[in-house]
Design a protein around this nucleic acid. Structure first.
Length: 875
DNA sequence: GAGGTCACG
DNA sequence: ACGTACGTGACCTCC
């Protein structure tokens, strides 16, 4: 039999440590989870690395202990446990139970005493014992058989205290730790010790006299000194302190070592707790496969051909795809249900089924889907134009709560309490193990998804109605999905040769700069490694390190910018970074995304992702193509119309976010500025600096512009000071002057935060919501962040509402005008079209008209536009 | 897979 | 005193 190994955990101490080491995480239901999460990761690691045969978590029983009889002020003056931590203890208990680990507490005793008692007993039975705590006192328990693990900074790092280690660190035996504490005291436990004696003195005295008692016995031999006086005066207190610090190893515990046998977690219970707490990363990482709940039996039929009698006027449809890249991936199958009968057909068979093709394209046949845009795109590839989409689970969930949206039907369904569908991961596996299962399994999975969509449609629509968000969902997001689908499928043409030419020139330049940098550094190194670069700049070349990151020196551009005068290498590094970015992301990255069949890139617009209601763009991201610097901007020369004789046409909203702010705040001054058509940054400068229009110089305008950005982002003096590279005080003055000039804005910002605290969420013009659970947090950082978010989200989100509405109106207008022009891209405040040259004049009229009238604000919306043979020229 | 960096609005 | 500007995605290094 292998040797027994006992793991004893100090529950309270570890929970405290985890709580203060981690940021205040919350799960989806707003419960704080950082302490439980930290405890879990630590426990997982210990169980894995130590493989204990017995485990116990000990807790402190209550406020009063036997130590209070000796000293009533014991642990007095302690801060009250923060409520954010208290609320986590029930979950911690539940978690430990799910691990199948006993927990124990004993009236009048502390966790230390339970641990000490059990450790001593276990040692007599020749077990190996590991004690884990955040409290250094427990090191007194270390022996040859008992090792005491103390958490170091954070929770993942552990210090293993063996007697040898303690000897090396303090020159003391473990038991002398008690004497040390008797002399120096412990402010956190309110143990007094001897005033004026710290760690150094205590250790020195104990090395000579072995113990507190030994010290006082030898007191006569000590030379007269201030220290001696203090020692003599506090003899009683020193002895009491030692007593208080001594862990009692004969506590009358009612639990035996035999009760502590550990044989692994209750996987089902543990995954349930993890799910409740929202520990998604742990669920994914865990070795044990996530136990899917027993699925209720489910009826479905696999068919080879869809007949008209299979098809109803209203059905849920699910098109199953092999992965998220729906423009390229394999299409697996289609399930349809009307709630009574569910059918599944392999995709290849579905494509051949005329009845189904026809039904899918029939706009009068009502369809419920999850991610209709993905289905639309996947079907488009086989020549089917999906129509009649009336419900989209993905979009409805997103509108209901943008923080919860996932991309898996099962994940979305579970948020709504529906569990009769498995996650993709459970069916396909993950990582290298990912594979398509047999047809039965696949068919059932896809059928269950369709059924879930069918079942959840009434519930979600009801939820949206209740929150007055049905309009937003049904008349904005749902029709927008179809428009985005068309844009994605259409794609935008990229000239491969142009990119390759630029790539060649870039790589020539990069080779030269690289050599310059190596020469200036005196050695070759990886310039792309911030770690290696940091060593070169700050250690080898001795440049001043201005900013640090978690892991070392910061080498970010704003830091390097300040170091420019210090060394010639800096400029070369900045240039290397700039050109390297262009090469890797925009030349090589973009080339990889060009489809060889049509020379186009087909991005995917994520419509259910951002917290604010904006879109995002992936594979490739076409919303961050360079423009600010000329070298990068040239990338846009590679984006061209798809046909000879066509042009690109780009139209963007001018200052949409500040106009939205003017509208929502009804600030008289800001509204007036926009109504008069003034340059808003100049106008801001005039007000902030109290000057006339012709006195505003470029610096004043630049500062005003930064202040305007700051206002939109949820202003802070620090943020502005960083941006403008001025002192915090100067920044604060700017902000103050701004808010004096625009009192309506100040009022609005104050109100929105109050509003968010009251309701727990903020809204946009079209009633999009963002929940802000942290807005009432007692943690300054979290609360401040939530407050800035409360100020920013209505602005950014309403701007997103406006352009989305404009896209819908624009699609209708193009159709109405019977135009060939096509909308290709959206970049937050700008729309990019391609059109025959002869249609440009019409676009110049109708695009601004439609965009400016998408939603009526109390201030006018203004649209600028341009056209050209490439995206670069449409500026 | 996380962290650092940098591209955009 | 606390330590930040808001929202994204891609690439690179390093563990």
């Amino acid at each position: 039999m292998t040797k027994e190994k006992l793991l004893l955990l100090d529950g309270n101490s570890l929970a405290y440590r985890a709580f203060f080491a981690l940021p205040l995480l919350t799960n989806d239901s707003g419960i704080h989870t950082n302490a439980v999460y930290g405890f879990t990761t630590m426990l997982q690691k210990l169980l894995e690395e130590e493989q204990p045969t017995k485990v116990l978590v000990a807790f402190d029983a209550g406020k009063t202990t036997f130590r209070h009889e000796t000293f009533t002020e014991y642990k007095g003056g302690r801060q009250k446990t923060p409520p954010e931590l208290s609320e986590q203890f029930p979950y911690l208990r539940k978690l430990i139970e799910a691990y199948g680990i006993p927990q124990y507490e004993l009236e009048l005793y502390e966790a230390d005493d339970i641990i000490g008692t059990l450790a001593k007993e276990a040692a007599t039975q020749n077990m190996d014992v590991i004690i884990v705590s955040g409290d250094r006192d427990l090191t007194q328990l270390a022996t040859e058989q008992v090792t005491v693990y103390i958490t170091k900074k954070g929770i993942t790092e552990i210090e293993r205290n063996t007697p040898a280690f303690i000897e090396e660190k303090y020159g003391l035996t473990p038991l002398q730790i008690i004497d040390m504490k008797g002399l120096m005291g412990d402010s956190s436990d309110n143990i007094p010790g001897v005033p004026g004696v710290g760690e150094k003195t205590a250790v020195k005295l104990l090395k000579e006299h072995a113990s507190v008692e030994g010290l006082y016995a030898a007191m006569d031999t000590l030379k007269a000194s201030k220290m001696k006086e203090k020692l003599v005066a506090n003899e009683e207190q020193a002895l009491m302190s030692k007593q208080l610090a001594t862990i009692f190893t004969e506590a009358p515990i009612t639990i035996t070592l035999a009760d502590l046998a550990y044989d692994g977690p209750n996987v089902e219970a543990l995954t349930a707790v993890w799910q409740e707490l929202g520990f998604k990363s742990l669920l994914e990482k865990s070795d044990f496969t996530v136990q899917e709940e027993e699925q209720a039996p489910f009826d479905y039929t696999i068919i080879k051909e869809v007949k008209p009698e299979h098809l109803q006027d209203v059905m849920a449809v699910h098109v199953e795809l092999a992965d998220e890249h729906y423009h390229t991936c394999a299409q697996l199958g289609i399930a349809l249900t009307d709630g009574k009968q569910t059918i599944y057909i392999a995709f290849d068979d579905a494509v051949k089924s005329e009845a189904l093709r026809h039904w899918l394209e029939d706009g009068t046949k009502i369809k419920y889907l999850a991610d209709s845009k993905a289905a639309q795109a996947a079907l488009n590839r086989v020549g089917i134009q999906l129509a009649g989409v009336d419900f989209d689970l993905l979009l409805a969930s997103y509108i209901n709560n943008p923080a919860l949206s996932g991309d898996d039907v099962a994940t979305l369904a579970r948020e709504l309490g529906y569990r009769d569908v498995q996650t993709n991961e459970a069916v396909y596996g993950k990582g290298a193990k990912r594979a398509i299962p047999d047809e039965e399994t696949l068919a059932q999975h896809v059928s269950r998804k369709a059924f879930a969509v069918w079942s959840l449609q009434p519930k979600l629509e009801h939820l949206l109605q209740e929150n007055e968000q049905f309009e937003l969902y049904k008349n904005l997001e749902l029709p927008l999905a179809a428009i985005l689908g068309e844009m994605e499928c259409e794609g935008i043409t990229v000239n491969r040769a142009t990119l390759e030419q630029m790539g060649q020139e870039l790589s020539d330049k990069l080779t030269i700069i690289e050599q310059d940098i190596y020469t200036e550094a005196g050695e070759a190194f990886n310039i792309n490694s911030p770690k290696q670069l940091g060593v070169i700049l700050f250690d080898k070349l001795g440049l001043p390190a201005i900013k640090k990151t978690k892991t070392g020196y910061s080498t970010a551009a704003d830091v390097l910018e300040k170091l420019k005068p210090e060394h010639a290498i800096i400029e070369h590094i900045l240039l290397y970074r700039q050109l390297g970015k262009l090469q890797s992301t925009y030349i090589e990255g973009l080339l990889k995304e060009i489809h060889s069949t049509d020379n186009k890139v087909h991005t995917r617009f994520q419509q259910a992702l951002t917290a604010t209601g904006r879109l995002s763009s992936t594979d490739p991201n076409l919303q961050n193509i360079p423009i600010r610097l000329e070298e990068g901007r040239k990338i846009r020369q590679a984006f061209v119309p798809s046909k000879e004789g066509w042009l690109l046409f780009a139209a963007d909203y001018s200052q949409i976010e500040l106009r939205v702010l003017a509208h929502m705040s009804e600030d008289k001054n800001l509204v007036e500025a926009f109504r008069e058509g003034m340059d808003i940054h100049t106008r801001t400068a005039m007000d902030v600096f109290h000057v006339s229009a012709d006195e505003v110089d470029s610096n004043m305008r630049r500062a005003a512009k930064a202040v305007n950005f700051g206002i939109v982002y949820g202003i802070s003096d620090y943020g502005l000071s960083q941006n403008l590279d001025i002192t915090r005080k100067e920044a604060a003055t700017f902000i103050e002057k701004y808010l004096d000039s625009f009192p309506g804005v100040k009022q609005y910002m104050d109100n929105i935060v109050i509003d968010a605290k009251m309701h727990g969420y903020v809204t946009t013009i079209l009633n999009r919501r963002r929940y802000l659970p942290d807005i009432t947090s007692s943690n300054f950082n979290l609360r401040s962040f939530a407050e800035r978010t409360a100020m920013n989200t209505p602005i950014q989100g309403s701007a997103a509402d406006i352009i989305k509405k404009a896209m819908i109106d624009m699609a209708a207008r193009l159709k109405q005008e019977n135009m060939q022009a096509k909308l290709l891209l959206q970049v937050h405040d700008e729309l990019i079209f391609e059109a025959p040259a002869e249609e440009i004049a019409i676009l110049e009229k109708i695009v601004p008209e439609v965009m400016e009238n998408a939603i009526k604000l109390t201030v006018p919306l203004k649209v600028d536009f341009n056209s050209g043979a490439t995206w670069y020229e449409a500026k």
